[in-house]
Design a protein around this nucleic acid. Sequence first.
DNA 1: CTAAACTCCGTACCTTGGTACGTAGTCAAG
DNA 2: CTTGACTACGTACCAAGGTACGGAGTTTAG
Lengths: 134, 134
Amino acid sequence: MKISEQTFTIGKLAKDAGVGVETVRYYQRRGLLAEPPAVSGYRRYDTLHLERLNFIKRAQGVGFTLEEIAELMTLNDTRDHRLARNLASEKIRSIETRIEQLAKVANALRHLVRECECGGQEMPCPIIRMALTP
Amino acid sequence: MKISEQTFTIGKLAKDAGVGVETVRYYQRRGLLAEPPAVSGYRRYDTLHLERLNFIKRAQGVGFTLEEIAELMTLNDTRDHRLARNLASEKIRSIETRIEQLAKVANALRHLVRECECGGQEMPCPIIRMALTP
DNA sequence: CTAAACTCCGTACCTTGGTACGTAGTCAAG
DNA sequence: CTTGACTACGTACCAAGGTACGGAGTTTAG
């Protein structure tokens, strides 16, 4: 028994999900979204497609790439929580590493700006000299 | 009076700087690196070119884009410290913003992983459900 | 002297996540 | 029934920072 028989065209689907029509078609090409059967040349999408799109958007929002999202969705099919957790944990670690790198860069730049403010115009600009030869 | 008369070909220059030959040529096309006179069809590079390349690499290392690096180098020519400082300060701010965004994402993911570890296999995986409907 | 290695130059291609365009077919309103 | 809006499909294009390739000329080692 189907709960809902509602179907819509790609334009309605895209609008409801808040993405462009071309984006929907792009996800289909990437294998992230199933291509529904066409009735007479026109594809008919249902609420499951809409949920998939919303899932993709939320997953993107927490930093997953489309490739990782595709992986998550196959994990969903196999109901493997452990692998999904691993994927998320890995993502957390890579974000932490990235934050550390960025913090170092910001500190190096702050150091340069201070140095530059102290020195007069006669000396070469430390930001430009990039004196922090690592 | 020239301190050094040493000149080298593009291959040697690239190797010394730790970049590819194509990268050197790419920087020339982008206007980041001057094209030296050719002796008989072959360009002859000197230590100034090598220093430029090293400058570019260090500036990239602290997060400047090639476009910003080009700007920094024209500032170098005009010896305008204030503009260089502004450029660096802006870069610091954008890095800080990026760090905050990433920290939020990492927290959301940590929350999901904890939730997933608490629940049993019978419930749908929260990471996959992406229960954090924003 | 010849062959390998290097250079020059232009152009095409790669990644990621889409956007834009053109042609042809189709659906809905007036 | 025609016009406008929509759809399908294929292809090209965008940023950024390069990488790869093809063909022709040059230089250098053996």
